[in-house]
């Protein structure tokens, strides 16, 4: 699948913001003065809303985007939109009450944490529910998104805490979450490498009973929209190197920085981690194969 920047930014940036809201809802954020509350929630919401705006860039008709909230009964894309709106609303309410009362509401916080992860889950299911793309069509896909989002949120909180208190905190917890997210992603990668759609040019054309089916002539001499959108291919070697870079940036360097205890390194963690996640997301799309390519001479 073509790795469109709008979607890569959408999934990774909103994932980061929702992860921050998750920890914010659980009350993990130290606030030395009331204005900090607005700054932290403002940062998280900017990430979430920025991600959503990026997703609008992907649309042919962004001015009609409100219509996407209507089909939550069947469409994960619609559910994602609805949950995102609800989460942003709950986050504003939670921050406002905290700001005015000087006391956080644990129950609204729980609600915020739950909704932010449900939103991430829905984002992942947009892709994870597509049977046409075997690499994505697996129950583990939403768990990858959720664990990476929680991870991103936590490293942001760690940097925040470093700024507030000047010393590293949550080191063990963050290590655990980083390792866990890494393990989930590696398992997903291993499984994805072996995934097959179960479809072949023979089943696509129904001519398998006669013999082996190969494309002789494409319907058109130039690439069409389908091939442009779904026929994206990256060299395998390329993909492997990129996944190594993603692992180093998203997990390894953050771990080293965390345990080094060096203040500037800890402050840099969320940025390095985020670049790693962007590469991971690029690969998520670029490596995915769509069954329609079987009609265009591909054999998975």
């Amino acid at each position: 699948m073509r790795p469109a920047w709008s979607i890569i930014v959408f999934t990774s940036l909103s994932g980061l913001g929702l992860g921050m809201l998750f920890w914010f809802g659980l009350g993990f954020v130290t606030l030395t003065q009331p204005i900090d509350l607005l700054i932290f929630s403002g940062l998280a919401l900017t990430a979430v809303i920025g991600g959503l705006c990026s997703s609008l860039l992907h649309l042919g008709h962004p001015e009609r985007a409100f219509r996407a909230l209507s089909q939550w009964r069947s469409s994960w894309l619609s559910r994602e939109g609805v949950f995102a709106v609800v989460t942003v609303g709950v986050a504003c309410l939670y921050a406002m009450i905290w700001f005015t009362d000087g006391q956080r509401s644990a129950s609204i916080g729980m609600l915020l944490s739950a909704f932010s992860m449900i939103t991430v889950w829905a984002t992942a299911m947009i892709y994870g529910s597509l049977k046409t793309i075997a690499r994505w069509y697996h129950p583990l896909t939403p768990w990858v998104y959720v664990s990476l989002s929680i991870c991103g949120g936590l490293v942001a909180v760690v940097a925040w805490e470093q700024m507030m208190s000047g010393s590293p905190v949550l080191v063990e917890l963050t290590t655990g979450v980083l390792v866990l997210a890494f393990v989930v992603k590696v398992i997903w990668w291993r499984r994805a490498g072996q995934s097959g759609s179960g479809s072949t040019p023979e089943s696509a054309t129904g001519l398998g009973a006669m013999g082996q089916v190969d494309l002789l002539m494409s319907p058109h001499t130039e690439e069409n929209w389908l091939q442009h959108e779904m026929g994206f291919v990256v060299a395998r070697k390329h993909a492997q190197r990129l996944s190594q870079i993603a692992v180093v940036l998203a997990f390894l360097l953050p771990l080293l920085a965390l345990w080094s205890g060096v203040s500037w390194a800890i402050l840099a963690i969320p940025f390095v981690h985020f670049v790693g996640i962007m590469i991971e997301r690029w690969l998520f799309f670029a490596e995915a194969k769509h069954v329609v390519t079987l009609f265009y001479g591909d054999r998975h």
């Binding site: 996407a68 049977k131 769509h290």
Partner: peptide
């Protein structure tokens, strides 16, 4: 239609 393209992704 908002032109999101998801339907085309879902069609085999």
């Amino acid at each position: 239609c908002i032109g999101c393209g998801l339907c085309a992704w879902s069609c085999p």
